[in-house]
């Protein structure tokens, strides 16, 4: 058996540095990552990277920062298993490996000039934030912007500072709901779907962008269709186990589609007839 170093391998990782770690909740931590030489990740909002901790493994993680942020990128990771627990152990200055970005992100060029309704539930705000911040940084290129945010409890809310800023902005309509309130909570209580009927929108010029847990999509899409938003203008980002990121390993397959290459962002008209998708 001969062995050859493979310089152009698609599995090569970029040795990157964690430059900031913040604990957001009991389960979620925020990481800011710097690529070698301070290179930009050069991603589209909605794309993901494969994060490596050598000896532990690799996992697909969505990019949470906008490409308008240069010099580093951000991600938020919930501690759920072996890999994410190991990632949570790491501190500022520690190294991780990065491959990517992978997948098809949100079609920002197509969104330009249109009104946008963002629907984020739970951890969905993490990848959606890459697009929200992109839109805010290029605010005049877009029409009306509404953000609908849902979380389990007020304590589960991520990016509280940024959310506070969104609520203050005059060029963003922000509303939020929690499944379970606490005594200090003054806002809405209920499912994310309960916020949709209250949004006023012009359906033919509105794109809705939904990211949340897998069970949520059907219900949110049904509400948006009631608002007459065309199917092709409803965008979702689907969560699957994107092991290789290269359309080969098979784990992320949805019917004939590979989520890692054909997605993770899909328009509803492309997947509504696809069993297993929603």
């Amino acid at each position: 058996m001969k062995k050859l170093l493979l310089k152009d391998s698609k599995y090569e990782i970029k040795k990157s540095k964690i430059i900031k770690v913040t604990t957001l909740t009991d389960l979620e931590k925020f990481f800011e990552i710097e690529l070698p030489g301070g290179d930009s990740l050069d991603h589209d909002p909605g794309q993901f990277v494969e994060v490596s901790i050598l000896g532990v493994g690799e996992a697909p993680i969505s990019v949470s920062s906008s490409p308008t942020k240069l010099g580093s990128f951000e991600m938020v990771v919930r501690k759920v298993g072996r890999f994410t627990s190991a990632l949570h152990q790491l501190k500022e200055g520690d190294e991780i490996g990065i491959r990517g970005p992978f997948g098809k992100g949100f079609p920002v060029r197509i969104l330009e000039g249109n009104d946008l309704v963002f629907v984020a539930a739970g951890l969905g705000i993490v990848p959606l934030r890459s697009l929200i911040n992109f839109v805010i940084d290029n605010r005049r290129d877009f029409g009306k912007v509404s953000i609908l945010l849902g979380c389990r409890t007020p304590q589960n809310m991520l990016f509280g500072d940024e959310v506070a800023e969104w609520t203050k902005r005059l060029d963003v309509n922000f509303s939020c709901t929690v499944d379970r309130a606490d005594p200090d909570w003054k806002g809405n209580v209920g499912m994310i779907t309960s916020l949709i009927p209250g949004v006023t929108l012009e359906p033919e010029r509105t794109f809705a962008v939904i990211v949340g847990p897998p069970v949520m999509y059907k219900f949110v899409i049904a509400e948006l269709l009631k608002k007459q938003i065309p199917e092709r203008q409803i965008l979702v980002s689907l969560e699957r186990n994107m092991k290789c990121g290269l359309g080969k390993c098979g784990h992320c397959q949805i019917n004939g589609l590979y989520c890692c290459q054909d997605g993770p962002v899909f328009s509803y008209d492309k997947i509504k007839g696809v069993p297993e998708a929603l």
């Binding site: 058996m1 001969k2 599995y11 990782i13 490996g97």
Partner: peptide
């Protein structure tokens, strides 16, 4: 640090 070398093994 995180140093990795991609390889291919063949015969």
């Amino acid at each position: 640090g995180e140093d990795m070398e991609p390889v291919v093994e063949y015969e």
